[in-house]
Write a protein that binds this DNA or RNA. Structure first.
Lengths: 246, 246
DNA sequence: TCGCGTGAGTTACAGTCTCTAACTCAAGAT
DNA sequence: ATCTTGAGTTAGAGACTGTAACTCACGCGA
């Protein structure tokens, strides 16, 4: 990718960074973000504590790196569904939601790392929002085909204003739907995506943090019901509308 | 309340515990659960570090205490709406959801403490589940009046089985709805409550952890839309059904 | 191929935090 | 009036983050 010049030292450095991140990821999986400890990583790599600060400025920097990877990975998982362009928006929504849940369930701690409670004292780098929105992009595409019911129109209205005032929002929309912010469908897409995100996050995070334990339902069923209801509220069609391919 | 015998020593002890908890609560509000540090609390109270271990067995014990209070407080906030028995189930749902959001928004860190990512190494005491269910109890009452639409029936089915197999679930239902687990309305109530919980948590936790920052909508609007949709999916009536008062 | 800059690594240490051990002391129950 | 018990103390072990000041050898440029 951006391998402008790759000297032996650079390569060695990259390799060590990767090794550190791999161990950090394991610690994350074993005990959550709090369990990621530079000292212990160093011991495992075979270095003395302070050596790690050659590779990451501090603990937050290491976590940021894990967070970025996680967002990118999630975006890929969700995006790969969007790329296949399933038969209908309805189906697409179901598949996207499944992919989201599937990704999170397969690596609960990584999900909690990016979507759980904010880490104490941690402040996210600037591009985090963009990465987060990349995960939700494919949902925009689906909901752009919808016709919002009465019940969700207040939200559509609020987001219509946003699309027209916020350049980043407009760019996000353009990238995934090709729509201009003035288009009614733009606001519809935003409303659908926000609703879907909110419901996905609710169900997935309760599942992943074990709060459904002992309750007699599967998260998958719950999520499917929610997406059906959402599809109904936006009257998602059973076929993709005509559009310029490419 | 349970003041069986209150010796001077007991009173002093209770007062000190309360003071410790008050400071802990402030630290929680200032920097999240991770920022609650016994050492610093001790300094503030004017004691030396280890003295605090006379009052709380360890850090987790202190946090458990805060967690219990938070659940009880939330249950009271939500329950006070349920007690007023608003004009209709539909209205009731809206008011309950508002109360939930309102409580959480007013004290974000306490919300994250009980509903955020699990704390590293922390294992909740046994009665936590019961306390959590007390918060959701009033929702059972509302959804017991519903008629589930097609889209949510898979969830109702799964929860019907649960109600009939799990004694704790049955007891929960009985307490808030008076229904026996065989009753169809029991499963409906459970499904509604679980859906509502999931959606409340999604919206509230994204709001409270600041992930909506920079997006052009209010959490309140989002939540209202969701509750409307949910009310529609359960065909919540505009009047309470007849029932034995008492 | 030689030399030297730079980056990788070291030890030592300061500071924060949790929690245990072993002790003192006085309030209050009997 | 006694003596039990609980509140408080200091000392200290063990993790962890992060800084300072140092050594050393790799590998780039002349």
């Amino acid at each position: 990718m951006t391998a402008a010049r790759t000297s032996p030292r650079d390569r060695y450095r990259e390799q060590t960074r990767a090794e550190i991140k791999a161990i950090a990821l394991r610690q994350l999986a074993e005990g959550g973000a709090g369990a990621v400890a530079l000292t212990r990583i160093a011991r495992e790599v075979g270095l003395s504590g302070p050596a790690l600060y050659r590779y990451f400025a501090n603990r937050d920097d290491l976590l940021s790196s894990l967070i970025q990877d996680a967002y990118d990975d999630a975006a890929t998982a969700v995006g790969s569904v969007g790329d296949q362009l399933p038969p209908s928006p309805r189906t697409s929504l179901r598949l996207l939601a499944d992919a989201y849940l599937g990704w999170a369930a397969a690596q609960p701690h990584r999900y909690l790392l990016i979507q759980g409670s904010p880490l104490p004292g941690y402040s996210a780098p600037a591009d985090t929002t963009a990465r987060a929105r990349a995960v939700l992009g494919p949902f925009l595409q689906v909901f752009a085909t919808g016709e919002p019911d009465e019940e969700v129109r207040p939200l559509v209205a609020e987001l219509a204003a946003w699309a027209q005032e916020d350049e980043a929002a407009a760019a996000w929309l353009r990238e995934y739907t090709g729509l201009e912010p003035e288009d009614d469908r733009a606001a519809t897409a935003l409303a659908g995506a926000v609703l879907a995100w909110s419901q996905l996050h609710g169900t997935v995070s309760l599942e992943v943090s074990g709060q459904y334990a002992g309750m007699g339902h599967r998260a998958r069923t719950l999520l499917t019901c929610q997406m059906s209801t959402l599809a109904a509220a936006f009257r998602l069609p059973d076929d993709w509308p005509e559009r310029a391919t490419g």
